[in-house]
Amino acid sequence: MADKKKMIEVINLNKWFGQFHVLKDVNLTVRDGEKYVICGPSGSGKSTLIRCINQLEHHQEGDILVGGVQVEKKGTNSRLIRAQVGMVFQSFNLFPHLSVLENCTLTPQLGLEMPKAQAEDIAMKHLKRVGIEDQALKYPLQLSGGQQQRVAIARALTMQPKIMLFDEPTSALDPEMISEVLDVMVELAQDGMTMICVTHEMGFARQVADKVIFMDGGEIVESGDPESFFAAPKYDRSKAFLSHIL
Protein backbone atom coordinates (compact mmCIF):
# COMPACT_ATOMS: atom_id res chain seq x y z
CA MET A 1 0.00 0.00 0.00
CA ALA A 2 2.69 2.47 0.94
CA ASP A 3 4.12 2.66 -2.57
CA LYS A 4 0.86 3.85 -4.12
CA LYS A 5 0.57 7.42 -5.29
CA LYS A 6 -0.39 9.97 -2.66
CA MET A 7 -3.73 11.42 -3.79
CA ILE A 8 -4.28 13.79 -0.91
CA GLU A 9 -1.75 15.14 1.51
CA VAL A 10 -2.73 17.45 4.30
CA ILE A 11 0.21 18.83 6.24
CA ASN A 12 -0.16 20.83 9.47
CA LEU A 13 -3.45 22.33 8.33
CA ASN A 14 -4.81 25.19 10.43
CA LYS A 15 -8.01 27.06 9.83
CA TRP A 16 -9.93 29.72 11.71
CA PHE A 17 -13.47 31.00 11.33
CA GLY A 18 -12.91 34.50 12.67
CA GLN A 19 -11.34 33.88 16.08
CA PHE A 20 -12.56 30.29 16.23
CA HIS A 21 -9.80 27.76 15.59
CA VAL A 22 -11.66 24.99 13.74
CA LEU A 23 -8.78 22.89 12.47
CA LYS A 24 -5.65 22.46 14.55
CA ASP A 25 -2.54 21.00 12.95
CA VAL A 26 -4.35 18.35 10.95
CA ASN A 27 -2.22 15.84 9.07
CA LEU A 28 -3.64 13.31 6.68
CA THR A 29 -2.34 11.26 3.77
CA VAL A 30 -4.68 9.38 1.47
CA ARG A 31 -3.19 7.13 -1.17
CA ASP A 32 -4.68 6.03 -4.45
CA GLY A 33 -7.65 3.74 -3.91
CA GLU A 34 -7.80 4.17 -0.15
CA LYS A 35 -11.07 4.78 1.65
CA TYR A 36 -11.14 6.96 4.73
CA VAL A 37 -14.07 7.40 7.03
CA ILE A 38 -14.09 10.47 9.25
CA CYS A 39 -16.37 10.52 12.25
CA GLY A 40 -16.74 12.66 15.31
CA PRO A 41 -19.23 14.88 17.11
CA SER A 42 -20.75 17.85 15.30
CA GLY A 43 -18.53 20.90 15.34
CA SER A 44 -15.41 18.78 15.39
CA GLY A 45 -14.23 20.15 12.03
CA LYS A 46 -14.71 17.04 9.92
CA SER A 47 -16.80 18.74 7.24
CA THR A 48 -14.51 21.74 7.23
CA LEU A 49 -11.56 19.44 6.65
CA ILE A 50 -12.97 17.92 3.48
CA ARG A 51 -14.35 21.26 2.33
CA CYS A 52 -10.81 22.62 2.55
CA ILE A 53 -9.65 19.86 0.26
CA ASN A 54 -11.79 21.01 -2.65
CA GLN A 55 -11.50 24.65 -1.76
CA LEU A 56 -15.03 25.39 -0.64
CA GLU A 57 -13.22 26.73 2.40
CA HIS A 58 -9.83 28.38 2.32
CA HIS A 59 -7.26 27.47 4.94
CA GLN A 60 -4.87 29.89 6.56
CA GLU A 61 -1.88 27.74 7.47
CA GLY A 62 -0.38 24.49 6.31
CA ASP A 63 -0.39 22.72 2.97
CA ILE A 64 -2.88 20.66 1.05
CA LEU A 65 -1.77 18.68 -1.98
CA VAL A 66 -4.32 17.09 -4.25
CA GLY A 67 -2.88 14.70 -6.80
CA GLY A 68 0.50 16.29 -6.14
CA VAL A 69 -0.79 19.80 -6.87
CA GLN A 70 -0.45 22.37 -4.12
CA VAL A 71 -3.75 24.04 -3.24
CA GLU A 72 -3.31 27.78 -3.23
CA LYS A 73 -4.51 29.40 -0.02
CA LYS A 74 -6.34 32.14 -1.90
CA GLY A 75 -8.11 29.66 -4.16
CA THR A 76 -6.43 30.80 -7.36
CA ASN A 77 -6.14 27.26 -8.68
CA SER A 78 -9.36 25.96 -7.24
CA ARG A 79 -10.80 24.91 -10.61
CA LEU A 80 -7.79 22.73 -11.32
CA ILE A 81 -8.24 21.06 -7.94
CA ARG A 82 -11.98 20.67 -8.19
CA ALA A 83 -11.70 18.95 -11.55
CA GLN A 84 -10.06 16.03 -9.74
CA VAL A 85 -12.35 15.94 -6.76
CA GLY A 86 -16.03 15.04 -6.77
CA MET A 87 -18.15 16.05 -3.84
CA VAL A 88 -21.46 14.79 -2.47
CA PHE A 89 -23.31 16.93 0.03
CA GLN A 90 -25.57 16.18 2.95
CA SER A 91 -28.43 18.14 1.38
CA PHE A 92 -27.87 16.73 -2.15
CA ASN A 93 -27.73 20.23 -3.70
CA LEU A 94 -29.14 19.09 -7.01
CA PHE A 95 -30.17 21.96 -9.27
CA PRO A 96 -33.95 21.98 -9.00
CA HIS A 97 -34.54 23.91 -12.23
CA LEU A 98 -32.69 21.35 -14.34
CA SER A 99 -33.81 17.81 -15.09
CA VAL A 100 -31.86 14.90 -13.64
CA LEU A 101 -30.16 14.41 -16.99
CA GLU A 102 -29.30 18.10 -17.32
CA ASN A 103 -27.85 18.06 -13.81
CA CYS A 104 -25.50 15.36 -15.00
CA THR A 105 -24.59 16.78 -18.42
CA LEU A 106 -23.66 20.19 -17.05
CA THR A 107 -20.04 19.45 -16.27
CA PRO A 108 -19.24 17.23 -19.23
CA GLN A 109 -20.74 19.78 -21.61
CA LEU A 110 -19.19 22.88 -20.09
CA GLY A 111 -16.18 21.77 -18.08
CA LEU A 112 -15.00 19.05 -20.43
CA GLU A 113 -16.49 20.74 -23.54
CA MET A 114 -18.08 17.65 -24.99
CA PRO A 115 -20.83 17.80 -27.59
CA LYS A 116 -24.31 17.33 -26.15
CA ALA A 117 -24.83 13.77 -27.38
CA GLN A 118 -21.59 12.53 -25.89
CA ALA A 119 -22.25 14.31 -22.61
CA GLU A 120 -25.65 12.66 -22.46
CA ASP A 121 -24.08 9.25 -23.04
CA ILE A 122 -21.74 9.80 -20.14
CA ALA A 123 -24.51 11.10 -17.92
CA MET A 124 -26.71 8.10 -18.73
CA LYS A 125 -23.83 5.73 -18.04
CA HIS A 126 -23.42 7.12 -14.55
CA LEU A 127 -27.15 7.34 -13.93
CA LYS A 128 -27.39 3.68 -14.86
CA ARG A 129 -24.59 2.91 -12.47
CA VAL A 130 -26.60 4.38 -9.59
CA GLY A 131 -29.84 2.88 -10.87
CA ILE A 132 -31.72 6.07 -11.79
CA GLU A 133 -31.61 5.84 -15.58
CA ASP A 134 -35.38 5.64 -15.98
CA GLN A 135 -35.88 8.85 -13.99
CA ALA A 136 -33.50 10.87 -16.16
CA LEU A 137 -36.11 13.24 -17.55
CA LYS A 138 -37.73 13.99 -14.22
CA TYR A 139 -36.86 16.98 -12.08
CA PRO A 140 -34.95 16.46 -8.82
CA LEU A 141 -37.81 17.44 -6.55
CA GLN A 142 -39.94 14.69 -8.10
CA LEU A 143 -37.57 12.07 -6.70
CA SER A 144 -37.22 10.66 -3.22
CA GLY A 145 -34.33 11.72 -1.01
CA GLY A 146 -32.41 8.52 -1.62
CA GLN A 147 -32.84 8.84 -5.37
CA GLN A 148 -31.74 12.46 -5.25
CA GLN A 149 -28.59 11.56 -3.39
CA ARG A 150 -27.83 8.83 -5.92
CA VAL A 151 -28.26 11.39 -8.71
CA ALA A 152 -25.88 13.66 -6.83
CA ILE A 153 -23.32 10.86 -6.76
CA ALA A 154 -23.79 10.25 -10.49
CA ARG A 155 -23.44 13.96 -11.15
CA ALA A 156 -20.15 14.11 -9.25
CA LEU A 157 -18.91 11.08 -11.18
CA THR A 158 -19.56 12.71 -14.56
CA MET A 159 -16.51 14.87 -13.95
CA GLN A 160 -14.51 11.66 -13.91
CA PRO A 161 -12.89 12.60 -10.62
CA LYS A 162 -9.98 10.74 -9.09
CA ILE A 163 -11.17 11.36 -5.57
CA MET A 164 -14.67 11.46 -4.10
CA LEU A 165 -15.55 13.39 -0.96
CA PHE A 166 -18.78 12.58 0.87
CA ASP A 167 -20.06 15.06 3.44
CA GLU A 168 -22.55 13.14 5.58
CA PRO A 169 -24.34 11.78 2.52
CA THR A 170 -26.99 9.86 4.44
CA SER A 171 -27.70 12.20 7.35
CA ALA A 172 -30.63 13.93 5.65
CA LEU A 173 -32.30 10.71 4.50
CA ASP A 174 -35.23 8.76 5.85
CA PRO A 175 -34.00 5.50 7.41
CA GLU A 176 -35.60 3.46 4.62
CA MET A 177 -33.44 5.17 2.00
CA ILE A 178 -30.04 5.09 3.65
CA SER A 179 -29.13 1.66 2.40
CA GLU A 180 -29.76 2.42 -1.29
CA VAL A 181 -27.22 5.25 -1.08
CA LEU A 182 -24.73 3.22 0.94
CA ASP A 183 -24.99 0.39 -1.61
CA VAL A 184 -23.95 2.78 -4.36
CA MET A 185 -21.07 4.02 -2.24
CA VAL A 186 -19.92 0.49 -1.46
CA GLU A 187 -19.99 -0.36 -5.15
CA LEU A 188 -17.97 2.73 -5.91
CA ALA A 189 -15.45 1.76 -3.24
CA GLN A 190 -15.16 -1.72 -4.70
CA ASP A 191 -14.37 -0.21 -8.08
CA GLY A 192 -11.26 1.29 -6.53
CA MET A 193 -12.26 4.96 -6.12
CA THR A 194 -10.29 6.99 -3.61
CA MET A 195 -12.83 8.17 -1.07
CA ILE A 196 -13.07 10.29 2.05
CA CYS A 197 -16.43 9.95 3.73
CA VAL A 198 -17.65 11.97 6.65
CA THR A 199 -20.29 9.63 8.00
CA HIS A 200 -21.58 7.96 11.10
CA GLU A 201 -22.63 4.82 9.26
CA MET A 202 -20.37 2.47 11.14
CA GLY A 203 -21.56 -0.55 9.19
CA PHE A 204 -20.34 1.15 6.04
CA ALA A 205 -17.05 2.02 7.73
CA ARG A 206 -16.52 -1.59 8.76
CA GLN A 207 -17.32 -2.82 5.28
CA VAL A 208 -15.15 -0.54 3.13
CA ALA A 209 -12.91 1.74 5.14
CA ASP A 210 -9.18 1.26 5.15
CA LYS A 211 -8.93 3.71 7.98
CA VAL A 212 -11.30 5.38 10.39
CA ILE A 213 -10.42 8.82 11.69
CA PHE A 214 -11.99 10.22 14.81
CA MET A 215 -11.98 13.99 15.16
CA ASP A 216 -12.89 16.22 18.05
CA GLY A 217 -12.28 19.91 18.71
CA GLY A 218 -10.61 20.41 15.34
CA GLU A 219 -8.01 17.73 15.87
CA ILE A 220 -7.58 14.17 14.74
CA VAL A 221 -7.88 12.32 18.03
CA GLU A 222 -7.10 8.92 16.68
CA SER A 223 -7.06 6.93 13.50
CA GLY A 224 -6.76 3.29 12.77
CA ASP A 225 -8.18 0.41 10.81
CA PRO A 226 -11.87 -0.06 11.49
CA GLU A 227 -11.60 -3.37 13.32
CA SER A 228 -9.22 -2.14 15.99
CA PHE A 229 -10.86 1.27 16.20
CA PHE A 230 -14.29 -0.15 16.86
CA ALA A 231 -13.07 -2.96 19.07
CA ALA A 232 -10.67 -0.96 21.21
CA PRO A 233 -10.64 2.82 20.83
CA LYS A 234 -7.62 4.23 22.59
CA TYR A 235 -9.01 7.48 23.89
CA ASP A 236 -11.85 8.02 26.33
CA ARG A 237 -13.30 10.62 23.94
CA SER A 238 -13.62 8.12 21.10
CA LYS A 239 -14.97 5.52 23.50
CA ALA A 240 -17.67 7.90 24.71
CA PHE A 241 -18.56 8.83 21.12
CA LEU A 242 -18.77 5.22 19.96
CA SER A 243 -20.90 4.26 22.92
CA HIS A 244 -23.43 6.87 21.77
CA ILE A 245 -23.71 5.91 18.14
CA LEU A 246 -23.25 2.14 18.14
Binding site: N54, Q55, L56, S78, R79, R82, A83, V85, G86, M87, F89, S91, N93, L94, F95, P96, H97, L106, T107, L110, G111, A152, R155, A156, M159
Partner: peptide, 29 residues
Protein backbone atom coordinates in the same frame (compact mmCIF):
# COMPACT_ATOMS: atom_id res chain seq x y z
CA UNK B 1 -29.27 28.26 -0.76
CA UNK B 2 -25.51 28.48 -0.49
CA UNK B 3 -25.35 24.77 -1.27
CA UNK B 4 -26.38 25.46 -4.86
CA UNK B 5 -23.33 27.63 -5.42
CA UNK B 6 -21.08 25.17 -3.61
CA UNK B 7 -22.39 22.30 -5.69
CA UNK B 8 -21.79 24.26 -8.90
CA UNK B 9 -18.30 25.21 -7.74
CA UNK B 10 -17.46 21.68 -6.75
CA UNK B 11 -18.50 20.61 -10.26
CA UNK B 12 -15.87 22.97 -11.60
CA UNK B 13 -18.15 25.76 -12.84
CA UNK B 14 -16.66 29.23 -12.54
CA UNK B 15 -18.31 32.39 -11.25
CA UNK B 16 -20.14 33.42 -14.42
CA UNK B 17 -21.41 29.96 -15.23
CA UNK B 18 -22.54 29.38 -11.67
CA UNK B 19 -24.30 32.72 -11.74
CA UNK B 20 -25.95 32.49 -15.14
CA UNK B 21 -26.80 28.80 -15.23
CA UNK B 22 -27.51 27.93 -11.61
CA UNK B 23 -28.23 30.96 -9.47
CA UNK B 24 -30.00 33.46 -11.74
CA UNK B 25 -32.50 31.08 -13.35
CA UNK B 26 -33.69 30.00 -9.93
CA UNK B 27 -33.55 33.47 -8.43
CA UNK B 28 -35.39 35.15 -11.31
CA UNK B 29 -38.11 32.54 -11.11
Amino acid sequence: PKGQMEAAQSLGLGYWRTTTLIVLPQALK
